[in-house]
Design a protein around this nucleic acid. Structure first.
Lengths: 348, 348
DNA sequence: TTGAAAGCGCTACCAG
DNA sequence: CTGGTAGCGCTTTCAA
């Protein structure tokens, strides 16, 4: 049987079976009839060299026709540096407060002409993760939460990172630190409840993993605020489910607690609801204080007292990063950036 | 009172004034007394070539001593491809529902050995943004929300992206689509309220910008569900503040509305509170339905009826991406991935 | 078993 | 004003 060429019907929208190679600046040069150097000059608007207007146009047209997009990796390889700011993505989705802060920060960095990238690190941790970040040769690394060890910081620095900034509960050697002292949140809550005459203070600690970074210091803060007084502190594990809250509420009277600091507003809402269903009056029988000053606290009845947390503006932090990148010589700075203040409403 | 960053005095630590150049594989080779090729073989465990054990050790030791970390850009430049999956970061922080979904997805992709990167695009939009993404030569791009036009998709494909997937309300030519039909959410709510005997339906539309992508379709869905019936639909702009909610509630009786679909549970909570403060009984005078099925809805009194939204599992989507990357030839698929179902509680 | 060398795409020197 | 070219760090043939 003779061989017959058969054309396979093919919709134009489908990806071509042999994808054309990605156009390079050499392709643009060829099409425009100039050298690669000229293409580079034109597309980068290099001021040190003047290219005639007709040539510019030809280059631009060729680039557009080919759909040319420069290759960032090649460019930064050649340049020997990049303007990438790398932020490891948090392992669990950030709450509204912290999420907004991160957002502002990233936006401010973008405005300063940095390429901001959130890097998703799954599985690796500590110095493993730091190595993975270092492979991208970021000019700066902003590490939220429990950061890498001093070892990890050293790896990043050796890989050319001009600024390593941690945003978390503790300093790391060699890195700039934005100290977010969550103990202060607990201290604030403890002192407030004590001042309101409460002496048997419960502290809700989320049962969910991944929150320990914040929940432990908040608990410790309450302990510290009440240390040496006649008040007692009881740790209350609580999962973020109605059932868990119900169980805790059902043995509330046995616990003999007259007040509770609930980690944050969401856990506070959960617990408050369960307590009310159990007939516990708030604040008469039990005072409740949340944290983060979310909208929902204002909407509860009674209105929820809370610890307002002040984070630095994204712009400030972006400027710090920029300053350090421009002058990496300085000694690492440590800034206390977490302001905690009580917002008394009706629940305490 | 604005919070002020306070610098804490700090012992001078070793930031060397003349930072050593970043070690390269050539440095490792020199220190180990072998060639760069051998270093590459050893560090990549190249199976096609066998290196003697003593040599391996020497290389590893040299690498460790120098703190050598390979240069990802150089590597992928040489390789001609990368395993980077790029996701533009949403302009506003994602809510808990969507945030969890994104998180799962990223984690699943990491497990498949992709480098997942959230790219923060500030200022640029549409095809401008697509060009910026294309510069990184990602192997796949996942675009949430209102994506780039067909133009943008073409740019990405020409830049070597083997998979472009949009996660949003509409298809884009040339890209695979995970259609999240938010109209279905509105239809669901509208049909439910109609079935409950409500005929004058209000729909809360957030006044905040950036939410139109979701709020418009949800409104349209309600309209569609009630089209041709004797029910009317009233659009109710609402800012996420107590004041805005108070104003809306104060003119509630004039509006003559007997039910409201509140965009999501948070806006529902805000409005419900204001209505209750105004003496409006829920659900007798006004039925309220939220969306997203957040925990907080269960905690309200009356318990909030809501539209439960089912998103695909991150693992499923990750596998789709992986499949398309491995075989980019196929025609773009469109999947309906948003399941909406009413969860009737006490507020409707 | 190891080394020499080419070349990925780009920019910045230096000549013409 | 424009072109040739070296070289960023890496991997991978091909030779030795």
């Amino acid at each position: 049987m003779p061989y017959v060429m058969v054309q396979i019907p093919h919709t134009p929208s489908a990806a071509s079976p042999t994808p054309r190679p990605v156009p390079t600046s050499a392709d643009v040069a060829r099409l425009a009839g100039v050298s690669r150097a000229t293409v580079s000059y034109v597309l980068n608007n290099t001021s040190a060299v003047r290219i005639s207007e007709p040539t510019r146009r030809r280059v631009h047209e060729a680039a557009k026709e080919l759909g040319y997009v420069p290759h960032a990796a090649a460019r930064s390889l050649r340049a020997g540096h990049s303007r990438m700011v790398l932020m490891p993505a948090p392992a669990i989705p950030a709450g509204p407060l912290y999420g907004q802060f991160i957002n502002d920060l990233q936006w401010a960095l973008s405005r300063l002409d940095y390429t901001v990238v959130q890097y998703v690190t799954a599985g690796l941790r500590g110095d493993e993760a730091a190595r993975a970040w270092a492979e991208l040769r970021p000019v700066a690394v902003l590490v939220p939460g429990a950061g890498p060890g001093a070892e990890g910081v050293a790896v990043l620095k050796r890989a050319g990172a001009r600024a390593v900034v941690t945003l978390g509960p503790e300093r790391v050697d060699g890195a700039h630190a934005l100290l977010m002292d969550h103990e202060a949140v607990g201290r604030c809550a403890g002192a407030h409840l004590y001042a309101r005459g409460r002496r048997r203070v419960g502290v809700v600690v989320p049962a969910e993993t991944g929150l320990e970074t914040y929940s432990r210091p908040r608990l410790e803060g309450v302990r510290r605020a009440l240390y040496g007084t006649d008040a007692s502190v009881t740790e209350l594990p609580l999962g973020y489910t109605e059932q868990s809250a119900g169980e805790l509420a059902s043995r509330w009277r046995q616990l003999g607690i007259d007040s509770v600091f609930a980690y944050n507003d969401e856990y506070a809402m959960l617990l408050m609801r369960a307590l009310q269903d159990e007939g516990v009056r708030i604040p008469e029988d039990t005072a409740v204080v949340g944290a983060d000053d979310l909208m929902l606290g204002r909407l509860l009845r009674p209105r929820l007292s809370t610890i307002h947390i002040e984070l630095p503006s994204g712009r400030e932090l972006a400027e710090l990063v920029d300053r350090v990148v421009r002058d990496p010589g300085g000694t690492p700075e440590t800034h206390e950036v977490l302001g905690a203040s009580v917002v008394r409403r009706e629940s305490s």
